[in-house]
Design a protein around this nucleic acid. Structure first.
Lengths: 141, 141
DNA sequence: CGCTAATTGCAAGAAATTTGCAATTACAAG
DNA sequence: CTTGTAATTGCAAATTTCTTGCAATTAGCG
């Protein structure tokens, strides 16, 4: 199945960064893989609270960020977390202000072209970018 | 001077929303007006700590957000705050991963056009958007 | 000028995040 | 397959961030 492939990739990423492949890390990763939209830290803590300590969640999320396995997504109050492009493909988000739904959409090549223009104009080397839209989804408007 | 005009606008915004024009609110606003890049709450608390209580900063920032005077900016760990488009014009940010500098740049019409395409494609009504770039600035790359 | 509701400061409380440390575990070397 | 060792975990406590209650003060309307 597909999940196994990503888990495999994750294990290699850990190894490459000299981090251990613990059950807690696998579970946290697999839990994140199952989410269809970004989660807050508290949501993640709740999702795995029977299998690991809160402190461990914090520490592992930090590690995951360090090795590039997870990305912060900013919508609403506190930031949320999701697996990085490496596991989910590059995409952006639209958050509906009415129902709170987060919809993902793919990168448009023409949008990327615009970003490169900006990059050149300012002598900036872009390593990543994030685009967040807010408004009303097709159900709510 | 220019600052006075924005302060005037701010006072009217308060009145329109039935909030009082207190010295604390004016000072917090003027302090934010002086910043060239978004500030964390802690930075703002430090900047005004001789003139007002921490709690007051929290409460007023919440009010400012409610009336649309400030916007959250997401870069780095916790979110940061800056005056909204109303006072600073619409713009985006590039954060340097090396020196931490935040550079602002204006909206490109062609970029906006791209966003409208996405909006139509997904039947979404966009009310606001934010674009954040990360990478290395011209000094650091 | 005086009234009233909004705002402030302070103290206390709750929530989120970090740290120290002893016990456990992954995994590499033999 | 054992063994050694450093990384990881859980727990308790500390710290930091944010919120709430309440009495005292103040802005702004009449």
């Amino acid at each position: 199945m597909n999940e196994t492939k990503q888990l495999q990739q994750f294990k290699e990423l850990l190894k490459r960064n000299k981090y251990k492949n613990t059950p807690e890390r696998r579970l946290l990763f697999e839990t994140m893989l199952r989410q269809s939209s970004p989660c807050s830290i508290q949501e993640l803590i709740d999702l795995v609270k029977n299998s690991m300590n809160e402190t461990t969640v914090y520490r592992n999320l930090e590690t995951f960020e360090e090795i590039g396995a997870v990305t912060r997504v900013y919508s609403g109050w506190r930031y949320k977390l999701e697996l990085s492009d490496m596991f989910r493909g590059h995409h952006h988000h639209m958050t509906c202000r009415n129902c709170g739904d987060v919809i993902s959409f793919d990168e448009q090549p023409s949008l990327l072209a615009e970003l490169h223009k900006i990059e050149q104009k300012h002598g900036f080397t872009m390593q990543s970018h994030s685009l967040e839209l807010e408004g009303l989804c097709s159900n709510c408007c």
